[in-house]
């Protein structure tokens, strides 16, 4: 069980518990957070600082220290951030077949632009074939209050449309993750890639492990079935999948694998399968 399942799962997987998508959970704001006219607490608040001023806290401070060769400060700030974020829910990687289950009860759902891709590559997504992010739950009904946050508009989808849309991005090579928003409420389903996704980059480049949790699964390659075609190669965003030349087969590093299942959905011979992380002794606590 990951830490979110422990506190919010009700005995099962937290994201398969419909309670966590409910209006009641949405109303439970983070302590001290109220309605505002300006999103002062947004991740973009850093943009308001004086030009040229050195950042004094948080990830920007750690990265500045690392860029100057000061790894001691970098490690200290990163471990502080981890200690703080382990106290609250984080994003979790979810494989495609469980996304389909979630979409059966996570209504209403609306596709929208991705804030990470907007900030990192200045992507302006403005229609359904461009939107890469999805808002879940009643919070989406109020999107028009923040046109800048939802730049490019949103599109409310039926369950069937939503499933087709997620499959479209899976084929394109995006992995799926759930985001909690403003507390424990599960408010978003993202389709992400490295390096543009904030949580992926923060975890695999900078060791912020508490903000993005691995999925409940690990992917295994069945070497009896794998013929080394290489269709799965290049789908992994986590440096876990490679071609092992010695065996002439695909190779998955169990400790790097996040269980997103992108390799599984690409395999034409069903040679890659999910195994339950919790049932593998050496991986049961590797989140």
């Amino acid at each position: 069980m990951c830490r979110m399942c422990d506190s919010m799962g009700g005995g099962g997987t937290w994201y398969l518990n419909p309670k966590n998508y409910s209006n009641r959970m949405y109303k439970l704001r983070e302590p001290g957070k109220g309605p505002t006219t300006q999103l002062g607490n947004s991740p973009n608040a850093g943009a308001a600082q004086e030009p040229g001023a050195a950042p004094r806290m948080g990830l920007p401070h750690a990265l500045e220290a690392k860029a100057n060769g000061d790894l001691e400060t970098f490690n200290k700030v990163i471990s502080d951030l981890n200690r703080r974020s382990v106290m609250r829910a984080g994003a979790q990687v979810v494989p495609l077949h469980e996304v389909m289950e979630i979409l059966d009860f996570g209504m209403p759902v609306a596709a929208m632009m991705c804030i990470c891709r907007k900030n990192s590559r200045a992507c302006e997504e403005c229609n359904l074939s461009e939107y890469t992010c999805m808002g879940l739950g009643t919070g989406m009904l109020k999107w028009e209050r923040w046109p800048e946050r939802y730049r490019g508009g949103v599109e409310f989808l039926s369950t069937k449309q939503a499933k087709e849309w997620v499959e479209y991005w899976d084929k394109k090579g995006m992995m799926h993750m759930l985001m909690q928003e403003g507390g424990d409420f599960i408010g978003g389903l993202c389709n992400c890639d490295y390096p543009d996704c904030g949580p992926i980059r923060n975890r695999i480049d900078y060791g912020l492990w508490a903000q993005l949790v691995k999925s409940e699964y690990v992917c295994f390659v069945d070497w009896e079935k794998c013929n080394g075609c290489g269709d799965c190669l290049g789908r992994c965003h986590y440096n876990a999948l490679k071609f092992e030349a010695t065996m002439e087969k695909a190779h998955i590093d169990q400790f790097n694998c996040f269980g997103c299942g992108l390799c599984e959905t690409a395999c034409p011979r069903d040679a890659i399968s999910y195994r339950d992380r919790k049932k593998i002794p050496g991986l049961a606590k590797v989140w």
Binding site: A47, A48, W146, P147, E148
Partner: peptide, 11 residues
Amino acid sequence: VHETKMLRLEE
């Protein structure tokens, strides 16, 4: 790239 202001009802 970041927006310098995020205002209610305004793009």
